[in-house]
Write a protein that binds this DNA or RNA. Structure first.
Lengths: 226, 226
DNA sequence: CATATATTTCAGTTTTCCCTGAAGTATGCA
DNA sequence: TGCATACTTCAGGGAAAACTGAAATATATG
C-alpha cells in the first residue's frame, strides 16, 4: 500500500465491498469471529481472512483470540465515526420508498454502541419534547434534572458516565433518517438498558435489532406525548 | 460502480491517490481549475479530467464553469468532514520528527474553511486560557462575553453567525496535533478575518498558509498569556 | 478567422488486486 | 493420537480500472 497517501490507503480498505460489509456488520458493536464475518460479507473463508488481515494491518479492526476462534471488532470510536461520516455522504436522499428488505434495519439498529434508525430518532425526539434532554450547541445534548431522574430509575450511573473520557451525550446524524439521535456514553448506556431489559434484542449477524412486545409497550408509553 | 454498497463506492473515490490528492488540495477551501488540480495531483490533464468527472458523479465535488476554465470545489461540509474523519484514523501517531518538507503545512493550514495545524491549536488554547472561549460538552465551544467583545472588535457579526444553519462553534480534531481547534461558523469567520487583515496568506495550490510579519506580531500578542 | 489554451472523450495497453483451489497451522475433542 | 474445525498462507488466473497518446470540443485572443 501507498504510505505516502495514508488517507487513500484507509479509503481503499473501506472501498472493497466485502470489507465494507464486514465493517458495517462490526458497527453493530459486537466482536465477531472470522467465519461469521465471512458469511456476513458473503465471501469464502480465505478471502475473508485476507481482507481481515488487511483491515487489521490498517488499524481499522482489532482481534482477540479465543481458542480456535479469532474475534474481530472495530478498533476505536474514531474508526466507527469515520465510517459513519462516509455513510452520511454516501446515502442519497430517500427516493420514494425503499425495498421492504431494509425496513427492519431502517427501523431500529445499533450504531457502534448506541441505538440508531427511526426508533432512535423517535425516542430522542420524545426525550427532547419531554425536556429530559436539551440540545446544546450543534453537537451535544444536555441532560436535564428530569432526564437524570429517568436514568436513575433505569439504574444508569450518571456520574460514572460523566467521568468517562469519551463524549457524554452527543448527537449522531442518522444515515437513513437524516436526523440527529442520542449517542455518546449516555446513548450507549440507554442502548444497554434496552438490551438488558429485553425491550430490544439483537438479530444474529446484523446491525438490526428487534423490538419485543414488552419493549413495544414500554417504548410506546415513553414516546407517547404526555 | 456498485450501487449496492454506497459506502464502498464513496470510499473507492477517495481511495485513488490522485483523487485523494485533489480532494485534500480542495480542502484548502478554494475552488480550483481542472488544470491546477491535475498539477496538484501530479497527473496528466486527461487523467485529472476523468478523476474529476468521477468525483462529480459521486457528489464529492461541485463544478462551476467560467470561460474555458472549470472550477471544482468540495460539495459540502459533510464531505469535508468525512475526509477529515478518515484523516484522523489514517495518520499514525508521530514517530520522532517529520521531514522538514511538511513543516509549513503542519504549522498552519486551512481545514475546509477554518484554520488548522499547530497555530490553530495554539490560538484556540489561548482563547480558552483567556476565557474568550469555553469548551462545552465534548464537541462544541461556547463564546463568552469577553470572546464576543473580541469578535465585535474584529467586525465579525456574531448574531449573523448564530442564525446560520451550520454549526456555530464546534471543535475539530487536528490530524497533525491530535488536539482540538476552533471550527464551525466562528472558526470560519476568524480564519477570514486573519486572511482579510493579511495576518496570514494562502500559499498557491496548497492548504498551507504563511504567517506575515504583521500577523506574527499580532498573533504572538494574542497568544501571549496575560 | 486562425491559432492557442483548457478541458474532455476515446481506444488500447498495462497494472493492480480480488477470487479460487490447495496446502499449512493451530486448537478442540474423542 | 487421530480427526474435525477454524483460520491463514500461497500461487496462479482473470477482471476492473488507471494511464497514455491521439483526437475532439469549446473558449479566449490576436
Amino acid at each position: 500500500m501507498n504510505d505516502k497517501f495514508p488517507i487513500a490507503s484507509t479509503a481503499a480498505l473501506i472501498a472493497e465491498p466485502a470489507r465494507s460489509a464486514m465493517l458495517l456488520t462490526l458497527l453493530g458493536g459486537r466482536a465477531l469471529a472470522a467465519g461469521e464475518l465471512a458469511r456476513a460479507a458473503n465471501v469464502s473463508a480465505q478471502s475473508a481472512s485476507m481482507h481481515l488481515s488487511q483491515l487489521l494491518q490498517g488499524g481499522l479492526v482489532e482481534v482477540a483470540q479465543d481458542g480456535r476462534h479469532r474475534y474481530y471488532r472495530i478498533a476505536s470510536p474514531e474508526v466507527a465515526h469515520a465510517i459513519e461520516a462516509l455513510g452520511v455522504i454516501s446515502t442519497r436522499p430517500r427516493p420514494y420508498h425503499l425495498p421492504a428488505k431494509n425496513e427492519a434495519i431502517r427501523y431500529a439498529r445499533t450504531c457502534y454502541d448506541h441505538l440508531a434508525g427511526e426508533l432512535a430518532v423517535k425516542l430522542t425526539d420524545a426525550f427532547v419534547r419531554k425536556r429530559l434532554l436539551v440540545p446544546r450547541g450543534e453537537r451535544d445534548y444536555e441532560i436535564t434534572v428530569r432526564g437524570e431522574e429517568l436514568l436513575a430509575e433505569w439504574r444508569i450511573d450518571i456520574e460514572g458516565l460523566r467521568r468517562m473520557r469519551r463524549s457524554f451525550a452527543h448527537r449522531c446524524l442518522d444515515w437513513t433518517e437524516r436526523r440527529d439521535h442520542l449517542a455518546g456514553a449516555v446513548g450507549a448506556a440507554v442502548c444497554q438498558k434496552l438490551l438488558d431489559s429485553r425491550w430490544i434484542i439483537r438479530e444474529r449477524n446484523s446491525r438490526a435489532v428487534q423490538v419485543t412486545s414488552t419493549g413495544r409497550r414500554n417504548l410506546e408509553a415513553l414516546i407517547a406525548s404526555n
